[in-house]
């Protein structure tokens, strides 16, 4: 089922993407193409096959529970737009 421009606008808002009306049109066309491909794949009978969450048939590696990282605040905050008193500063957020 093809997407509507309204659905694309909503996705853009959820993804915090500012898009012009022209961009909404092109994005909708591209997403429709991707969804059509998914629809073709979903037409294949997969009953009895457990879905995979990852293309590789592997299990995740685990790390030992130990502290291996040291303080790199100065380095990280050197590239932050704004920092003060050890904090990253961002436009005011109030819930």
């Amino acid at each position: 089922m093809p997407l509507t421009n309204e659905q694309v606008r909503r996705l853009a808002r959820l993804s915090r993407l500012a898009m012009t009306d022209a961009a909404i049109d092109t994005t909708r066309t591209r997403l429709d193409g991707i969804l059509a491909l998914i629809a073709r794949m979903q037409a294949v009978d997969t009953s009895g096959i457990a879905p995979m969450s990852h293309p590789q048939e592997l299990a995740t590696r685990l790390r030992t529970d130990e502290v291996t990282e040291s303080d790199q605040r100065t380095a990280f905050q050197a590239i932050a737009p704004q920092a003060e008193a050890g904090l990253y500063l961002v436009p005011k957020v109030i819930e």
Partner: peptide, 24 residues
């Protein structure tokens, strides 16, 4: 109550100065 974080090797200790236990 682990020593390190769930996906990184940074410490989980409470009460440290801001951002000194925040890894890449």
């Amino acid at each position: 109550n682990t020593e390190a974080k769930i996906f990184s090797g940074a410490s989980t200790a409470f009460g440290a100065s801001p951002n000194v236990q925040a890894s890449a």
